[in-house]
């Protein structure tokens, strides 16, 4: 069995493909759009329009960057409030033009800094949670690496949420958990096991619909699988009456953790 912390390491691995690689390989004609029209353009989130098997879709991704300079510009994939607002703006446009939305999630968390707080990090994420729940177009979110708490959830209220085999999704980082529990961030391995943060764990807890196999690191195969799976689920959801789709989306989150109540 692979230890949960090994998954954490794999999810954070330097050579792991970031959102842009997924976008380039799954879609065609990706056309990036910038800015939240309120404050700035947050490069930790990329957003734009592309085609999935010819169908126009809106694509949004938390992007960590590849080279150091790019990583710095993208704040290592930790978004500020304007990032979440830029994403929401693109989602609203997707709703207006009946485009499905696909989100790629890969972040250690929403940024915890002075400017982020001053501009309402909590409010920005909260607004996304509310608006995504009733967005009148299909939404699929895929965790491709790190799913860091509220910063990940801010792009993961969807009809379906999938996780790559080696991605993780957690309420707190194993290091943060260990330092609170045992006053020792070095015990992150124990914490990772306690948190139940692997794709398998989340699948068995009923939090995600699919675990996407990584084919031993053959990402070409992963992109091909995702292209097919996305097209299929979006086609199905497009055929549903909007009310049914939204009812299902609400019920999807409504039932989490209610077993035995």
């Amino acid at each position: 069995m692979i230890e949960p912390y090994e998954r954490v390491m794999a999810a954070r691995a330097k050579d792991r493909p970031t959102s842009m690689r997924f976008i380039e390989n799954i879609f065609t004609d990706f056309t990036e759009m910038h800015g939240d029209r309120r404050f700035a353009d947050d490069k930790a989130i990329v957003a734009g329009i592309a085609r999935l098997n010819g169908m126009p879709v809106t694509v949004i991704g938390l992007e960590k960057g590849v080279e150091l300079k790019e990583k710095v510009a993208r704040n290592f994939g930790s978004a500020h409030p304007e990032g979440y607002r830029k994403a929401l703006r693109q989602m609203k446009l997707a709703e207006k033009f009946h485009r499905p939305v696909i989100c790629f999630v890969d972040t250690s968390g929403a940024y915890c800094g002075i400017a982020a707080e001053e501009r309402g990090q909590g409010q920005a994420i909260a607004e996304n949670l509310m608006e995504m729940m009733t967005l009148k177009t299909p939404v699929v979110s895929i965790l491709i690496g790190e799913g860091g708490s509220g910063g990940a959830l801010g792009l993961a209220v969807a009809d379906q949420v999938w996780m790559l085999e080696n991605s993780v999704y957690s309420v707190i980082s194993p290091e943060g958990c260990a330092s609170i529990l045992w006053k020792d961030s070095g015990k992150m391995k124990e914490a990772a096991a306690c948190l139940k943060l692997t794709a398998e764990d989340l699948f068995s807890l009923g939090v995600i619909e699919q675990v996407i196999p990584e084919h031993n690191g053959d990402f070409e195969q992963v992109y091909a699988d995702l292209q097919e799976k996305l097209y299929k689920v979006i086609r199905t959801n497009l055929q549903l009456p909007t009310e049914t789709m939204l009812e299902n989306r609400y019920a999807r989150f409504r039932k989490i953790g209610t077993a035995g109540l």
Binding site: L129, G150, L153, V157, S170, V171, L195, F253, I256
Partner: peptide, 13 residues
Amino acid sequence: GILSLMQMAKTSG
């Protein structure tokens, strides 16, 4: 764990 994070989405809905 993750179940508490999901309460954010549930309550927001």
